[in-house]
Simulated scan of single mutants.
Amino acid sequence: MILEVAQLEVIPGLEVAFEAAFAEAQQIIASMGGYISHELQRCVEQPNRFILLVRWRTLTDHTVGFRDSPQYQEWRKLLHHFYDPAPSVLHYESVVQNSIVRTGIN
């Protein structure tokens, strides 16, 4: 599995509109071959910063399968005008995985 990590800096004041556009755009990415899951998180300290985490079966599922697809052009049309600067995107693979889940406060 590959984890795509995209750091998104949304133009201040456009956060709500971005979140609405993302609600539509996420259907595009979820329909792609090799897609596993995704989550969008908003920064607490700097509310115009987001991080998008997308899990792909392989690197090429993202870099070729998605980015070279017509669906990617629709994704860009919905989202890329919100960013300044352009997103930083890197890919990671698991080295160590911890499956301990803690609930409550000890």
Rank of each mutant, 00 (worst) to 15 (best):
L8E: 00
V10F: 07
P87K: 13
P12H: 12
E45P: 01
F50W: 02
L79R: 05
F82K: 09
M1I: 00
I11T: 01
G65W: 02
I2E: 02
N98T: 05
Q71W: 03
V16P: 02
H62W: 03
F82V: 01
P47W: 02
M1G: 14
V5R: 13
G104S: 11
Q27D: 14
G65K: 06
L79F: 07
G104M: 09
L14R: 07
F22P: 01
C43D: 08
L3Y: 04
V64F: 08
A21D: 02
Y92Q: 13
S69Y: 02
I100E: 12
P70R: 11
F50S: 08
G34P: 04
H91G: 07
L90F: 06
E19V: 05
V10K: 00
Q7S: 14
E19L: 13
I51F: 06
V101Q: 07
F22V: 05
I51M: 13
V89H: 00
F82M: 11
D84H: 14
M32Q: 09
L14K: 09
Y35P: 03
T60S: 15
G13K: 07
A23Q: 10
V95Q: 09
E4Y: 06
C43A: 15
S37P: 01
I2P: 00
G34V: 01
L40C: 09
I105D: 04
V101T: 05
V95F: 00
R57Q: 15
F66V: 05
E19K: 15
F18N: 05
H91Q: 12
H91E: 08
Q41P: 02
M32L: 09
G104P: 04
R49K: 15
C43P: 00
R76P: 03
E9C: 14
Q27Y: 10
C43E: 02
I28D: 03
Y35W: 06
G33V: 04
G13A: 12
T103R: 14
S69P: 02
R67T: 04
R42W: 02
Q46S: 14
A25E: 04
Q97I: 03
G65H: 04
V10M: 07
H81N: 14
M32N: 03
T103H: 09
Q73I: 02
D68K: 15
H38R: 05
N48Y: 12
V54N: 06
